[in-house]
Computed example of a mutant assay.
Amino acid sequence: MLVFEPEAHMVTASQLRAGMAIRFEGNIYKVMAADYHPGQGKMGGTTHARLKNLATGTLWEHSFRSDLKLEDLAVEKQPMDFLYSDGEACYFMNPETFEQVSIPAAVIGQQASFLQPEMRVAVEFIEGRPVSVQFPDVIEVRIAETAPPAHQQQDSTWKTAKLENGVEIMVPQFLKTGDVIRLDLETMKYMDRAKSGEKKRS
């Protein structure tokens, strides 16, 4: 009996967009960013992509010929609740089926330190395997420790602040210990002070 493999869905490098997943040279990558640069004259265009290896968590930047064909992999997202981390992996549970899955902490990256028990996130699956976590773009987090406010300092000066999960970032001088701020998780940069002043609980 002949078994036919499903035909791979191919895209050209010029079609790459953030959030897609591709197979390249035997590895599966998530596209974190992609910029297409048209060529001049007879020179073909190129696509500069920032990729994340979903087996190791390593970030990699590469320029593809715009007409290069790449295998486009379907990404399935399932809402799941974070359970715990043992340092090596983070564990999640489907709230409807109670199925549990794990993803290496190294693959999730520094954002793993912002996971809280029962926090609901979108876990991304490729070919039935959990490979990554989709976090909200912005989260609210409390400052656990920082130098006292220095209002006389210029607004352009910043200071170090340790967040409640131990991560250190740079914040403006006027902030104090206990303040709740909004943080851009992609860049790990301070955005502004949370309007409510109280951290929203999931």
Score class of each variant (00 low, 15 high):
residue 2 L to D: 09
residue 2 L to Q: 12
residue 10 M to P: 03
residue 12 T to K: 15
residue 15 Q to V: 01
residue 20 M to R: 04
residue 21 A to V: 10
residue 22 I to A: 05
residue 26 G to T: 04
residue 26 G to N: 13
residue 32 M to W: 09
residue 32 M to H: 06
residue 32 M to A: 09
residue 35 D to C: 04
residue 36 Y to G: 02
residue 39 G to H: 13
residue 40 Q to D: 11
residue 41 G to C: 04
residue 42 K to R: 11
residue 46 T to N: 10
residue 50 R to H: 13
residue 51 L to K: 02
residue 51 L to F: 01
residue 55 A to K: 15
residue 55 A to E: 15
residue 56 T to R: 07
residue 60 W to T: 15
residue 65 R to F: 08
residue 68 L to P: 01
residue 70 L to E: 00
residue 73 L to K: 00
residue 75 V to E: 14
residue 79 P to L: 04
residue 84 Y to N: 12
residue 92 F to A: 00
residue 99 E to M: 11
residue 99 E to H: 09
residue 102 S to G: 09
residue 102 S to V: 00
residue 104 P to W: 01
residue 104 P to A: 07
residue 105 A to P: 03
residue 106 A to S: 13
residue 106 A to G: 04
residue 109 G to P: 02
residue 109 G to W: 00
residue 115 L to Y: 05
residue 121 V to C: 02
residue 123 V to L: 03
residue 124 E to T: 10
residue 125 F to Y: 11
residue 127 E to G: 06
residue 128 G to Y: 08
residue 131 V to M: 15
residue 134 Q to W: 00
residue 135 F to E: 06
residue 137 D to Y: 09
residue 139 I to Q: 03
residue 140 E to T: 02
residue 140 E to L: 05
residue 143 I to N: 00
residue 144 A to N: 15
residue 151 H to S: 07
residue 153 Q to R: 14
residue 154 Q to F: 06
residue 155 D to Q: 06
residue 157 T to E: 11
residue 159 K to Q: 02
residue 163 L to V: 03
residue 167 V to H: 05
residue 172 P to H: 03
residue 172 P to V: 04
residue 175 L to I: 00
residue 186 E to Y: 11
residue 188 M to F: 06
residue 190 Y to T: 01
residue 197 G to Y: 02
residue 197 G to C: 05
